[in-house]
Design a protein around this nucleic acid. Structure first.
Lengths: 332, 332
DNA sequence: CGCATGACTGTGACCGGTCACAGTTTTACC
DNA sequence: GGTAAAACTGTGACCGGTCACAGTCATGCG
């Protein structure tokens, strides 16, 4: 069993020097056509693969990005959103032959480890997922000068950190407008946590669009989970039985709301219409299928990766705001 | 802005040589107490962190494991199972200061890339998630001698590859026994794909426990997704309206079955009882809450990591089989 | 007291790439 | 035909660790 071929083996096989092989591998500029084909042929024959560690040591770049989760456990468990983003990011990176390392910063001990790890330069940058307001981890990353891109505008750090987000306010207005156009009048909202962008700005959009008809008694807050949506819906029902539509800031909360309404003997959408947000996998298969705002997950993850890579390359790209699309199904 | 401190800086600060610092870092054997405290103090003062790439280059180990997903897109989207395993594995590794890199092998191109990547030794081993029968990727990994641990026994490779699995047959028998004890007689099964361990062995357990009462007309196959569960349930209903209970091989399929039953005007569990498998996040919040078999996700991921690390260290550990627990809720 | 053993320390080579630089050949143009 | 620029190639140093080995010193024992 021979050891793995190195760049020197390839050089020998191709009859050129290490330098030339290295040049071929990295774009092939200033390499003669002859040398290039010789090297490519030699790489094929030897089955050569570049050693990540060696390259990383020499170039000073890790060749990987971190996917940093700061959410508490139960949200990750339920929310298909994370899985979508994760997969999208992994694929976008694979195309650039970089890798994604998953970091979990749930407990304080984990947060410390993660901070240490990232500062140590083990990754070139961080894809930060959905952090709550004034997350100290964001400060720490910024202070340490670690290139970071957030998904959703981190409250308390607006404009300090690069983001890819959807037009939260506009999306919420669009959904609200849709509900009003369908004739619903007493519309409630199950908002997300007020210290998350999705919680804050979707509520803002809802309030703006409702105008004079806005009734703060018809607003409840959940944590995006199905359970919290169910609870929020019961509180809404307790306060006003004349509610005829509910806009939830996540599909999961919408599903929870539907469950509560059913238990209360109300039909969806005949008695109360329910709209969600995300268009996560379950929205289409839910009973009834959920009307929701689709977030362009693939474009979000691709955007985060591309922004972060630009940032790492020293550019100062603009934040990205993506549009959502209204998906009308049966629940509203 | 100074560059990051290296082991040489620490050595200088502590008044010892590189070798001694290295020894302190790696367990501290054959180091005098004086030297040790001096080095530890110097590490603190300089804020030194070991360079992953350099260590990796010198030792020949990557210091990371791959979490390899081979499932098609829509399953990952829906199934909370993956997220649980992923998170568990990431945390188990973080404790050992190793990292998890996420690899996605969906398309043929991705599979080729992944195979190449893994063979190149960019990771020390692979945590392989839920592969279908005779997956060529398994062959390739085995052939390349890459340490691999599977979650669930990969059909077609039994006993060739190390696994962490639950007692599928026993679990299915337990659930079936429970249903029969509750008095259900015409029990159907929505099995998983027959080329996956969960599809095959849960059906085996069901059949064994049903004995003479087993009726192959009451078995349908899904792909673990909610939609497939709904479809399977309609096929079952078409064939026999006297069915009084259904055992689904996943919670998602159970949820789909419930939806179909509802549409058909049947109540759960009064007309037809429904049981699931996994105890995924949604099982408890589902309407009605699902009776299911809980898989010990944390122990599974922890087991996979520990087995894989042993394998990497040259040991030949035994496969692990873990027990499940029956969780009785309202659906059956 | 001499010598073996064990505890501890320092040194140089090496892991497998990249990069800057120097050297060589080719082309372009006067 | 000479010269400068451009195109291409090879070499040695370096990235930051680990490891084997050689060396020093103290201790124990015959």
């Amino acid at each position: 069993m021979r050891r793995k071929p190195t760049i020197r083996d390839v050089a020998a096989a191709a009859g050129v020097s290490r330098g030339t092989v290295s040049r071929v591998i990295n774009g092939g500029h200033w390499v003669s056509p002859d040398a290039r084909v010789a090297v490519e042929e030699a790489i094929r024959r030897t089955g050569y693969t570049a050693n990540h560690a060696a390259r990383s040591l020499a170039t000073g770049r890790a060749g990987s990005l971190a996917f940093l989760l700061t959410e508490p456990q139960h949200l990750l468990f339920q929310d298909p959103t994370f899985a979508l983003l994760l997969r999208g990011a992994a694929e976008a990176l694979a195309q650039r032959s970089m890798t994604l390392v998953l970091l979990v910063a749930g407990t304080p001990a984990e947060r410390a480890n993660v901070a240490h790890f990232v500062r140590a330069g083990h990754v070139d940058g961080v894809l930060l997922i959905s952090s709550h307001e004034a997350d100290p981890l964001v400060d720490e990353l910024l202070e340490a000068g670690v290139p970071t891109v957030c998904c959703g505008i981190p409250l308390g750090h607006e404009s300090q950190v690069l983001t890819v987000s959807v037009d939260e306010v506009g999306s919420a207005r669009e959904m609200t407008r849709y509900l009003r156009n369908r004739g619903y009048r007493r519309i409630g909202m199950i908002a997300g946590p007020h210290d998350t962008p999705g919680g804050k700005f979707r509520l803002v959009g809802f309030e703006e669009e409702m105008g004079a008809d806005f009734d703060s008694a018809l607003v409840e807050e959940g944590d995006y989970s199905q359970e919290s949506g169910a609870l929020a819906m019961s509180r809404l029902l307790e306060r006003s039985r004349d509610i005829d539509a509910v806009f939830a800031a996540s599909d999961l909360m919408a599903a929870g709301a539907v469950a509560t309404l059913r238990k209360a003997g109300l039909r969806v959408p005949d008695d109360v219409a329910v709209a969600g947000f995300d268009d996560s996998g379950m929205a289409a298969t839910h009973e009834p299928p959920l009307t929701t705002m689709r977030q362009p997950w693939e474009r979000i993850s691709e955007g985060m990766v591309s922004l972060l890579l630009q940032l790492i390359d020293g550019a100062l790209p603009e934040p990205i705001t993506l549009p959502t699309t209204l998906v009308v199904r049966e629940s509203a």
